[in-house]
């Protein structure tokens, strides 16, 4: 393999990995706080992508910068997250993990079908938000769009880590899953913290949608399934419930996919899903996770 091919693949892998990492963060934050896998999380990306599809032209025709569409998408996804949590998940929260899991799967199917009714099943092309030039680095052509995507991912991940470590709200988000009763005694409104966590996790899906559409500008109603599945694997690989784990897992899955595709194009999905099986057999708590009882 030539250096330029390696370098190009590394960039592509990091790009894909940053997208997976952002989606994985949504899974992991929600899991971290209520021990539930939100299988509808992948579909929040679809909602974010459709929002971009409709709002970018509106922004452009209104003479506003296209990136404002991202703000709209973040708000829309955050709201959808709050609605889904309040009306679908909260009523079954005390009914046990199996009920929560089935509710989440049903929500995923519901959102996909709702999107099909609203937007049709044909793919739509999302207009570009950023059209930065490509530059040549050491004989390799690198798209600045991709560099920007990776940078956005990094900044958000670092920001989130700081938020959770340093702010009172972030600390409350860590306290609630450790001890709900004690959190209540400290004056933490547990339900509100859960809602806020959902809103943030879902808003991250909108950013992931932006990053995805910058690279693959195509929206379909079922785009969330594959993306969600792979990001879920990333979250498990890194250690679900652990924020740095989601980042690490996302980047690893992205790199694995791109490099496997380079050597054995037909095999990359098999390897990604195989990773899940291996990690569940070898270290079910994930690379950065601590082992604690049963999950899902």
């Amino acid at each position: 393999m030539t250096f330029s091919l390696f370098f190009q693949s590394l960039i592509n892998g990091l790009n894909l990995g940053a997208i997976y990492a952002l989606i994985a963060l949504g899974y992991t934050m929600v899991y971290g706080i209520i021990r539930m896998i939100n299988f509808a999380h992948g579909d929040f990306i679809m909602i974010g992508a459709y929002t971009l599809f409709y709002t970018i032209p509106m922004m452009v025709s209104a003479g506003m910068p296209a990136w404002l569409a991202v703000v709209v998408a973040v708000v829309v996804c955050g709201m959808v997250g709050i609605l889904v949590e309040t009306f679908a998940y909260r009523p079954v929260r005390k009914a046990g993990p199996m009920s929560a899991l089935i509710t989440a799967l049903a929500m995923s199917i519901f959102l996909q079908n709702l999107a099909m009714v609203l937007f049709g099943s044909r793919p739509h092309n999302v207009s570009t938000i950023f059209s930065l030039p490509s530059v040549s680095v050491a004989g390799v052509t690198v798209s600045l769009n991709v560099v920007l995507t990776i940078a956005i991912g990094l900044v958000i991940m670092l920001g989130l880590q700081l938020f959770v470590k340093k702010t009172p709200l972030g600390k409350a988000m860590r306290a609630v899953p450790q001890d709900r009763d004690a959190s209540t005694l400290m004056g933490i409104n547990v339900n509100r913290i859960i809602t806020v966590t959902f809103a943030i996790g879902s808003a991250l899906a909108a950013v992931a949608a932006l990053m995805y559409c910058t690279t693959y500008p195509r929206v379909t109603n079922d785009m969330g399934t594959t993306m969600g599945m792979k990001a879920f694997i990333a979250a498990v690989l890194g250690g679900i419930g652990v924020i740095p784990g989601a980042m690490l897992g996302g980047v690893l899955i992205g790199l694995i996919e791109v490099f496997v595709r380079l050597f054995a194009p037909g095999w990359y999905e098999a390897v990604t899903y195989g990773t899940l099986i291996v990690i569940l057999l070898v270290k079910p708590s994930g690379i950065l996770g601590r082992s604690t009882g049963e999950k899902v």
């Binding site: 600390k171 450790q178 004690a182 005694l185 400290m186």
Partner: peptide
């Protein structure tokens, strides 16, 4: 304030963070 049975401290937070949580409301 209420010091519950079995202490119910936040095990995965530092001692200082636990104290900070005590002052969360005010």
């Amino acid at each position: 304030a209420h010091v519950p049975e079995g202490r119910h401290i936040f095990p995965e937070m530092t001692v200082e963070e636990n104290l900070e949580m005590g002052a969360y409301a005010d």
